[in-house]
Write a protein that binds this DNA or RNA. Sequence first.
DNA 1: GTGCATTTGATGCATATGCATGTAACGTCT
DNA 2: AGACGTTACATGCATATGCATCAAATGCAC
Lengths: 125, 125
Amino acid sequence: MSGSEEQELVAKWRDLLTCYNNVACDLDRELQDQHGLGLSEFEALDRLIESGQDKLRMHELAEGMYLSQSAFSRTVARLERAGLVGRSLCMDDRRALFVTATEAGRSRHAEARDTHRKVLAHHLS
Amino acid sequence: MSGSEEQELVAKWRDLLTCYNNVACDLDRELQDQHGLGLSEFEALDRLIESGQDKLRMHELAEGMYLSQSAFSRTVARLERAGLVGRSLCMDDRRALFVTATEAGRSRHAEARDTHRKVLAHHLS
DNA sequence: GTGCATTTGATGCATATGCATGTAACGTCT
DNA sequence: AGACGTTACATGCATATGCATCAAATGCAC
């Protein structure tokens, strides 16, 4: 790999690093301040509701998410503690858990969605 | 903002989120395992050495970095504890501190640089 | 069926982070 | 010179994260 290719690669990475942190930090702060939701909590809730499914297995919801399994587990636990999702046993496979958005979860998500989109538009347009 | 524009925006954000986390997580793990350096520590050391300056004020080094002031302060503190940088008083402005890479810092950086570039190339090419 | 690897989710632990705040030095204005 | 706002760093605190590990249920080979 040539020196200039390296430089390009590093520059690309630093852009990614900076851009991500700007957006993530701002997004997390806004969501937290205005809706009491962390970034990961919103992401999980958003994906759950946008899936159109009434309930998803933990594993299905975790799929495509950027978190480690443990961090995801705790994220859902926080959502549950906040009353925004519920968990129920899956009879087909008793290792698995279903996650469902509660009514409170749906309305919180609806409120937060505007903030989310606004911050994204501000940074990524 | 139309629905499809929103979708596009969200998709863009999720790509960024996923991509960043993949690279950052992998990079941090490799740097930590192979060289005992965290991602932020490497970034700080890299920027210090690449600057070509013998010493930089904390504030100058922090500039353009993605961390909060407190996180940056602790990152440099870790580098110092590891013997990879030194800090010295700035006589012009006694609030400021100079940061300098030690010999150990320079050689550690040289070792880690390959790993860094390799991981970046693997993810961003 | 039995044994064993695999899968699913939770948890202990160490650590990095952001926010708020503290401290000291600087600059300015009067 | 004195008062006051600003700047440069450090630190207390709460929290989110990853890794390793654990427990339980499942599947698979025999």
